[in-house]
């Protein structure tokens, strides 16, 4: 019987350390490390102002990446998000320029609703093409990526689409530049979106279905889960997240062009992967994704504040980050 007592003892010891899931912790450890590096590079870096700035600027990618977490967890991929931002933003501005509604507040409310609907619609189109059309998500969204981008170019006739009504501009500006209880609105929005997303993914039936479909769609089907519906809804969630990002984007510059959102899909996917979500589906980490988006933005910020790396290398560094994240993920999987 001493043998099993031994076992009980070792298991008690082993447990505390196994409670830490390395994969979940890794992105936050990386974030902490970056903060330390940044502070060493430039003392201004660690200031509350600078950090709030960084967080605010990461809002677009962070919110889009939250949507991507759903799509990727369910085993799909959406390459069209960058083009979708440009397309949805163009429609929103064109609608506000149309003068269809005289009252500015009403007009703004209608524009917000329209934006969400168009975003959801774009996501729905992606979802239906992949599921009902049975086309690989990579190819399907590569196609819609071209379509949304092309439509934007056509709508803008190759130039920019700019919000003209000054009254609307003033009314809408605080949505990006304002603060709530001293916290910049974009940060509040990031938090709200993430909390809702985490709740949906971890605490609802739908979230469980997403993970099941992503880890093994046969098992999901045999368990009576409507696989295609679950996947399609994930694309719709992605579309809505893109729309929310657009709602923050439009008041910032008040204009869009055919080059808006280029390569954002790459950044969103990077944020998701850096955050610890498996690219092959079956596990989603919403908070990790947010952490990943911050990391991307922080790296850029550190490069700007430091003098020894050219900021023109940002793209290359971000590309390297996704590869490193994959390597780290794989080595952690092997160890556990």
């Amino acid at each position: 019987m001493t043998a099993s007592e031994d076992a009980a003892e070792t298991s008690a010891r082993g447990r505390t350390w196994r409670d830490i899931d390395l994969r979940a912790v890794a992105p936050f450890a990386a974030l902490a490390l970056l903060l330390i590096v940044g502070a060493l590079v430039n003392p201004n870096f660690i200031g509350l102002n600078n950090l709030a700035n960084v967080a605010t600027r990461s809002a677009f990618i962070a919110i889009i990446a939250v949507g991507a977490t759903f799509v990727i967890s369910s085993g799909d991929l959406d390459l069209s998000v960058g083009s979708m931002v440009a397309f949805v933003a163009s429609i929103m501005i064109l609608f506000m320029n149309s003068g269809a509604i005289a009252d500015p507040s009403l007009m703004l409310a209608a524009a917000v609703a329209l934006t969400i609907i168009i975003g959801a619609g774009c996501g729905l189109a992606n979802g239906l093409i992949t599921t009902v059309g049975r086309i690989e998500p990579f190819i399907a969204t590569l196609g819609t990526m071209g379509i949304y981008r092309g439509l934007t170019t056509w709508l803008s006739q190759g130039g920019a689409i700019t919000l003209r009504e000054p009254e609307l501009q003033t009314l809408y500006r605080p949505a990006y530049f304002g603060t709530i209880l001293g916290v910049p609105v974009p940060i509040v929005v990031i938090l709200a979106v993430t909390i809702v997303a985490a709740f949906v993914l971890y605490r609802t039936r739908y979230g469980r279905h997403v993970v099941a479909v992503g880890s093994n769609s046969d098992v999901a089907r045999y368990s009576g889960i409507p696989v295609n519906r679950v996947r399609t809804i994930a694309f719709v969630i992605q579309g809505v997240c893109v729309a929310i990002a657009v709602l923050l984007y439009v008041p910032r510059l008040g204009s869009t062009s055919a080059t808006t959102g280029i390569l954002w899909e790459l950044q969103a996917i990077t944020a998701v992967v850096v955050g610890g979500t498996a690219l092959k589906g079956g596990a989603g980490r919403v908070w990790g994704t947010i952490c990943g988006a911050f990391i991307l933005e922080l790296v850029g910020n550190i490069m700007l504040l430091s003098n020894f790396i050219s900021e023109y290398l940002i793209g290359a560094i971000q590309g390297a980050i996704i590869i490193i994240a994959m390597l780290v993920q794989r080595s952690l999987v092997r160890k556990s």
């Binding site: 099993s4 031994d6 076992a7 070792t10 298991s11 010891r13 082993g14 447990r15 196994r18």
Partner: peptide
């Protein structure tokens, strides 16, 4: 043992 849980004695 796997992760501190003994399965063969």
């Amino acid at each position: 043992s796997f992760n501190g849980v003994q399965v063969l004695f």
